[in-house]
Write a protein that binds this DNA or RNA. Structure first.
Lengths: 159, 159
DNA sequence: AGAGTTTAGTTGATGAATCAACGTTCTGCC
DNA sequence: GGCAGAACGTTGATTCATCAACTAAACTCT
């Protein structure tokens, strides 16, 4: 018998969650706009190029890209289609398994990644890191690293 | 100092940033799926209902909703269209300014929000808050609150 | 009062991501 | 060997959000 109509959602401290949501929206929006304006890449594109560049032979199977980007295989198909169309990536078929098709970083793609990388990292510094001291950054890395989806991905399975 | 590497992007501590991105993707995905499965609401829908419920007269102008949700006015038009279609919200025109159209929470909408709110908050607890101590949660709130976009007033409670 | 500007909201076309369904290829097991 | 079932990638349909263009109403300024 409350005297006020309520939603029953009172008294929960969600400030941390709200900060999380709001800042994510604002920051990714800004970084993305920058990346597109200056290098014609979405942050998805950038992410894929980066994953490829980190591989010794600069290639990854589509499914593996799907896992890392947290996209569906379908989404990766289309994303890589776009990157192929502008010659940042090419498709290479796998000799030992005809089902798999690699996305292979081209030299142009690698070059583009290097150019974009600088502005992207500067953007992250400006929009994110610059608001914290070094200690705070590692505190954050620690805290956020505990969340589902973050670095602990390997905890579920062994490769 | 200089690295021998190929992308020129090494040596930057981005663990915090990566944790931020990855956990956001994983958590919002999960919360959203839950909300849709159990209450037929996207988290956008939920967010709008919540904003409306927080207003004394349970209504907000479309533009104001756009600001708070970080969507475009266009996006809000369509989102509210959807909520109107299922009678959780209705449109009310403003007597003093014929340009503005309010989104007005219906009783059904308020009821639905209450139902969904419990599972949503439980979800946030399980996927986010549960990984931290109380102190850590307020640390996070403090840190994340400094980021662009997070500058807002605190409470999420509904009266 | 009337022209120009700003603000609110909607609409059409587009892009990004999803799901479900499919064809192809590989693997395990009899 | 051969078949059932899983895994890989693509495609079609749909959803959601965006931008740009538009209508209508309100403000400004002379």
């Amino acid at each position: 018998m409350s005297t006020k109509q309520t939603t029953g959602l009172e008294g929960v401290d969600l400030a941390a969650w709200r900060g999380f949501l709001l800042s994510h929206a604002a920051i990714t929006r800004e970084l993305d706009a920058d990346l597109v304006a200056r290098h014609g890449l979405t942050s998805r594109d950038y992410e894929v190029l980066l994953f490829l560049a980190q591989e010794p032979d600069r290639r990854l199977a589509m499914s593996e890209l799907a896992k890392r980007t947290m996209l569906t295989r379908s989404g990766v198909t289309r994303l890589v289609d776009g990157l192929c169309r502008v010659d940042l990536v090419e498709r290479v078929s796998c000799p030992s398994d005809a089902r798999v098709s690699y996305a292979q970083l081209t030299d142009a793609g690698h070059q583009r990644l290097r150019e974009a990388g600088r502005t992207h990292i500067d953007g992250i510094r400006a929009a994110f890191l610059s608001h914290f001291s070094e200690d705070e950054v590692s505190q954050l890395a620690d805290l956020l690293g505990r969340l589902p989806g973050a670095a602990g991905e390997g905890s579920c399975s062994v490769e």
